[in-house]
């Protein structure tokens, strides 16, 4: 499909949500402790490397979304839950980080293990 100027207001106003309207079970309940898998794909991913191996808590279940890691490479939508995971700053950066501060990162089911 060719993107033409007359389509710009249409796509700008409608957008394209990656949310999937499917009942897919969440692997983790909110409040659960999880560990980020030690993954280093050389292909597309939304997993920031600085979190590998870190332990956090499932704070928000955002619902089911297309999995970008497969979708980006035409390997299917692989819909799954995406969560906001809370990490203590000290868990990620060590004792010099402020004790009160936290990181909240949106991570997909496939990036997580139970901790």
């Amino acid at each position: 499909m060719l993107l033409t100027p007359d389509l710009v207001p249409v796509i700008s106003a409608s957008g394209q949500s990656a949310r999937v309207d499917e009942k897919i079970a969440a692997r983790f309940k909110t409040g659960t402790t999880v560990r980020v898998r030690n993954l280093h794909p050389t292909t597309h991913t939304r997993l920031p490397g600085y979190l590998c191996g870190k332990v956090g808590t499932v704070e928000i279940d955002h619902g089911v979304f297309i999995f970008p890691d497969t979708h980006a490479h035409n390997l299917g939508e692989k819909p799954q839950h995406c969560y906001s995971i809370r990490f203590k700053a000290t868990e990620v950066w060590g004792p010099t980080a402020a004790a009160n501060d936290t990181l909240r990162v949106d991570l997909f089911d496939d990036y997580l293990d139970p901790a």
């Binding site: 949500s17 990656a18 949310r19 939304r46 997993l47 920031p48 955002h62 979304f65 297309i66 970008p68 995406c82 906001s84 700053a89 402020a98 009160n100 501060d101 936290t102 990181l103 909240r104 990162v105 949106d106 991570l107 997909f108």
Partner: peptide, 26 residues
């Protein structure tokens, strides 16, 4: 806190700085 300070924002220690790394679809 270092970045915020460069923007002129200095917060008390007892305030939780909550950093949202928005890498997915939200």
């Amino acid at each position: 806190r270092g970045v915020l300070k460069e923007f002129g924002t200095i917060l008390p220690e007892d305030v939780e700085v909550r950093v949202w790394d928005t890498t997915a679809e939200l």
